[in-house]
Each structure stands twice: as C-alpha cells, then as structure tokens.
Amino acid sequence: MRHLSTVDLKVEQVSGVTIVHFPQEVDAVNAAAIRERVLRLLNNGVTEMLLDLTGTRFLDSAGVHIIVRAHGRSTALRVPLSAAIPEEGTVRRVFELTGLSRLVPTTIGLPRSAGPAASRSCSTARARGRGRKPRR
C-alpha cells in the first residue's frame, strides 16, 4: 500500500487556474492522498481549479468521492471547479453513469487555455449518452 506522501500529483498554475493532474489510476490505494491534496489547495485560497483526468484510465468509487468532496468544498468557498476528462474510456463512462458531468462542469480534453490539447464542451445531453451516433 502506498504511503500518502508517495502520490505524485502534478499541480500547475495556468492563467490563474490551478490545474491538478490526476494519476493514471485513482482507487482506494491513493484516493486519500489525492483528496487531501485537492482539499488543501482549495482551502489555501486558489481562485479556480481544474481537475485534469485526461490521463486517467481507471477511476473507482473512491475517485468519484474525491470529485464530489472537491465540488462541495469549492461550492462552499465559491471557487469555480471544473473537470477535464478523456473523450472515450472508463473515466468518461464513470462520469456519465454517476452524473458527475451534471454536478461538475466538464470538458472533453483540456481547455485550450489550460494546455495544448484541443477540447470540446461536454453538454448535458452528450454526457447523459444522448446525441451520440447509433452503433452499427
């Protein structure tokens, strides 16, 4: 089991936004350390936060809990919070199934102002699974 201090979270400031880059896997092993770091950043006066999950390939219920707690804290502190998720894969599906994309403003990929990756807004209809092309 990992010790809390061994989780490497890249945190950077871009145009006044604190970007927290989540690791490839977020689960019960590292969730406490990630949650602690995210909440500490919010409590220390960031003006806006983006949770970058574009490089995350696995997110379990402990990871969902981190995002819900961050949303609650950011709402209480009146700090804008958003999330960037991959276009496809498990993390995107978790956001759709749990309703996280309706709770937290979500983009597909990093916003242009936050990094080199192109992004699209994740509309509510698309996040709920509507608006997709039918499978053949």
Rank of each mutant, 00 (worst) to 15 (best):
T106D: 07
S123Q: 06
P86K: 08
H65S: 15
L39M: 11
G131H: 01
A83R: 04
I19D: 00
S113C: 00
P111D: 04
V17E: 05
H71Q: 09
S121G: 05
F22M: 15
V46G: 06
E25A: 13
R126C: 02
T18N: 03
H65V: 06
V79A: 11
L81N: 07
P134L: 14
L77Q: 12
S121I: 11
L97S: 10
V29E: 14
R93W: 03
A32L: 11
I34R: 05
M49H: 05
V20N: 00
T54Y: 01
T47A: 14
R35C: 07
M49C: 14
L50P: 02
R40A: 15
L103D: 08
S74A: 15
D8L: 10
T18V: 06
T54F: 02
E88G: 00
V68E: 00
S101M: 08
L59V: 04
G55H: 02
E12N: 07
A117W: 02
A33V: 08
N44Q: 15
R135L: 13
V14E: 07
T107G: 04
A114V: 03
P23E: 02
G129L: 07
N43R: 15
T90F: 15
I66A: 00
V11Q: 04
T90K: 14
T90R: 15
R40L: 14
R40C: 10
M1Y: 06
D8C: 04
A118P: 03
L39W: 03
G109L: 11
R69G: 00
A33W: 06
G63I: 01
I85K: 04
G131Y: 00
G63S: 03
V68K: 02
V26Y: 03
E96I: 01
E25H: 11
A117I: 05
S82G: 11
G99C: 07
A117E: 14
R93K: 15
G45C: 10
P86V: 09
P23V: 01
E96F: 00
L100Y: 09
V14A: 08
A118C: 00
V64C: 01
T47W: 04
S119I: 06
S121H: 07
E48D: 12
L77M: 14
R78F: 10
T56Q: 03
E12S: 14
R136Q: 12
V46E: 09
I34L: 09
H65R: 13
T6C: 05
A70L: 00
I85N: 03
S121P: 09
R128M: 12
L41T: 06
C122G: 02
V7P: 03
R57S: 11
E25F: 11
L110F: 05
T47V: 13
V68G: 01
V91S: 08
A62F: 05
T47M: 10
P23Y: 04
A125T: 12
G115T: 07
R2P: 14
L42R: 03
P80Q: 09
M49Q: 09
G45V: 10
L97D: 07
R132H: 14
A28Y: 10
T106S: 14
L51C: 12
F95E: 04
L9G: 02
L97Y: 09
L42T: 05
